[in-house]
Design a protein around this nucleic acid. Structure first.
Length: 601
RNA sequence: GGGCCCUUAGCUCAGUUGGAUAGAGCGUCGGACUACGAAUCCGAAGGCCAGAGGUUCAAAUCCUCUAGGGCCCGCCA
């Protein structure tokens, strides 16, 4: 990478000067950034400003000295100019051929262009979605799914050894509730009047499961005690719902390497072994939990009026508590319920402990409503001898679904949660994915269905895809005109001298740096913004060429070859960038006329 | 009462982990197709980066406080 080369030259120069006692050694990393204003050169280096204080010298004087040293180190004359500017920046201008050779690499590396080794092959497990198998995915799950998938894709491109993992909560009260809901629907199929309790799952998919069970077992479980059917109904229901979730995921192009079952953790004895392990390490004790804090100063409710499927909170009893408060959590957390069975938390730390043994770095993509859960998870890792730094949690904020600006009311209770599937079917896979990536994940997102369907700049996915299609059409035109698509030719690309062409070259060459930085920050939205900005620069260049007559394909064979090569590199970068995000890069867009007709039908 | 997140142009949002004069799109106004896709582009107007302190060569970015909005504070998962 070009930027790495600049860093290397400065590092050598700084080390040399420090060894000769001309300035102190620089401990922290200095920055090498592409400045906003191209007049400031290709890169701005802040090393002199960082050294000014420890050296006790004015930054501009130091910058002069450092620049002289860099010139001495630059044996191959890769640097064309060094300037001291502003408060003490060293502005670096590279020799033109350095950029052009880097441009050549875009095409020679092809579909691998943008891959880096910053991950060093380190193992990472990215856990995402992990939606409870109690119903189809809704829009909020979709955001987590797309962001998580973007993160894992980025890490893969940055040279990490990534495992995509889904934790299936197929054990515990919620899937039992699902099983009971199925049983109620099952009774209904035999003509009985049933009322679905407030906290049950009434959806149509529950009826489908009930129907399947009736087809297989007839009325065998109609009046049977719960102990006879609960496990069967639960397992069937979970299996069916997981099938729905897999379909939902396939609709947005997401696959997993591993599905980890909570139930399996119990059935294999892993949870019990883990509990004994905690006891041996003296990380648990039997005690009482302080009463829950009341909110808003109101007295704590004595009992929950609606207790249909809840156990309710009983008075303080002795529980097995995990010493999480010693590791940064607010209070100790129970790992066993009053009835002696392990809590969700217990199984989850066992799961995280297992993951930590399989990989050095863990990434969890969770809904923001799980934010309060993070400290105890970190505490657990710390207590178990790993570091809280080994876990990176990405909290996905809420999605507000709107339609033409009007809020789409979603309520779990009223059963009006909009499924991910409905949205994907209406706006398409690519638009859905891209939409979720146009916002930082830690900020709330307004997802407007009408806007996602619109084909304007409001909806950037069409803009970027159109740019890719437009580039593809240039090559179609070239073939038509008998112009060969060129391989790298230094003489040809040397004709790319306009400010716009120089800008495009720099953007394309910066692609791997951008990807690596986005990966290390776990921020896939950066890729989406990079693509928009890059294709905007191309559209501008293209239209300008149309106006001035300086078109890509012209009578000047050498210029044509240079520009076609630039287009080839651009197209590759767009395709690779869209690929990281899991969005298609079409060579041709459906025309708006055709689409309008289709809409009218 | 406590914890986490958010607040940047009329609207929706970026801002390269602390850098030089804060950027896009939409909307408004005015322009550009006999051509490789006008689903595009060019120009104009639009800002006390919620507010107040602090840290330093440098703050939208870091620390404290204040004001708004969201999420959470279970022996559910």
């Amino acid at each position: 990478m070009v930027r790495d080369r600049v860093i290397e030259l400065f590092r050598q120069a700084l080390a040399k000067g420090a060894a000769e006692g001309r300035w102190p050694a620089l401990e922290a990393a200095f920055s090498v950034e592409a400045p906003r204003d191209p007049k400031h050169g290709d890169f701005a280096v802040n090393a002199a400003m960082m050294l000014a204080k420890p050296a006790g010298k004015p930054p501009r004087d130091l910058a002069q000295a450092i620049a002289a040293e860099v010139r001495a180190v630059d044996a191959q004359h890769e640097i064309a100019g060094l300037e001291i500017a502003g408060p003490g920046f060293i502005n670096v201008r590279l020799a033109a051929d350095v950029w052009l050779r880097a441009l050549g690499r875009v095409v020679s590396e092809g579909t691998a262009y943008g891959r880096t080794e910053v991950g060093g092959g380190k193992k990472v497990i990215v856990e995402y979605v992990s939606a409870n198998p109690t119903g189809p995915m809704h829009v909020g799950h979709g955001r987590g799914a797309v962001v998580g998938d973007g993160v894992q894709g980025l890490l893969r491109w940055a040279g990490f050894d990534v495992t995509r993992e889904y934790y299936v909560n197929d054990y515990g009260a919620q899937v039992q509730t699902l099983a009971r809901s199925v049983h109620l629907r099952y009774q209904e199929l035999f003509g009985r009047q049933v009322t679905m309790p407030p906290k049950s799952y009434p959806g149509d998919y529950v009826k489908d499961i009930a129907a399947a069970l009736r087809a297989e077992h007839g009325d065998r479980y109609l009046d049977a005690p719960e102990s006879e059917w609960l496990t069967l109904f639960r397992d069937r229901a979970v299996e069916h719902v997981l099938g729905l979730i897999r379909e939902d995921l396939r609709a947005i192009n997401i696959e997993f390497d591993r599905w980890s079952s909570e139930k399996a953790l119990y059935e294999s004895g892993t949870v019990d072994r883990f509990l004994r392990f905690l006891e041996e390490k003296d990380l648990v004790y039997v005690g009482k939990l302080p009463p829950p804090k009341s909110k808003k100063g109101a007295p704590a409710p004595i009992a929950q009026p609606h207790g249909d499927l809840d156990e309710g909170v009983s008075a303080a009893e002795d529980l097995t508590l995990f010493r999480s408060s010693q590791y940064g959590d607010e209070v100790d957390r129970p790992v066993k319920k009053a009835d002696g069975t392990p809590t969700y938390f217990c199984a989850d730390i066992a799961y995280h402990w297992d993951k930590r043994q399989r990989a050095g770095t863990l990434v969890d993509v969770l809904g923001a409503d799980h934010g309060g859960y993070v400290p105890r998870l970190e505490a657990a890792l710390e207590a178990l001898g790993a570091s809280r730094k080994d876990l990176h949690v990405i909290l996905i904020q809420m999605v507000n679904l709107t339609r033409g600006g009007e809020a789409v009311k979603m309520s779990k209770r009223a059963g009006t949660v909009v499924s991910l599937r409905e949205v994907v079917d209406e706006v398409g896979r690519d638009a859905t994915r891209f939409m979720f990536l146009t916002r930082r994940s830690d900020a709330q997102l307004d997802f407007d269905i009408e806007l996602a369907k619109r084909q304007t700049l409001d909806n950037p996915v069409f803009y970027v895809q159109y740019g890719h299609a437009r580039l593809a059409q240039i090559f179609a035109k070239a073939r038509e005109s008998g112009v060969a698509v060129p391989e790298f030719d230094l003489e040809a690309v040397r004709t790319l001298t306009s400010p716009e062409e120089q800008d495009l070259i720099r953007r394309v060459v910066a692609f791997p740096d951008m990807l690596a930085a986005a990966a290390l920050a776990y921020e896939p939205h950066r890729v989406a913004f990079y693509l928009q900005e890059t294709i905007a620069a191309f559209h501008s260049y293209y239209t300008q060429g149309k106006r001035t007559g300086e078109r890509v394909i012209s009578a000047d064979a050498r210029k044509t070859a240079g520009r076609l090569f630039l287009c080839r590199a651009l197209k590759q970068v767009l395709a690779n960038g869209l690929g990281v995000l899991g969005v298609a890069a079409p060579d041709r867009m459906e025309s708006p006329e055709t689409r309008d007709i289709a809409d009218d039908v």
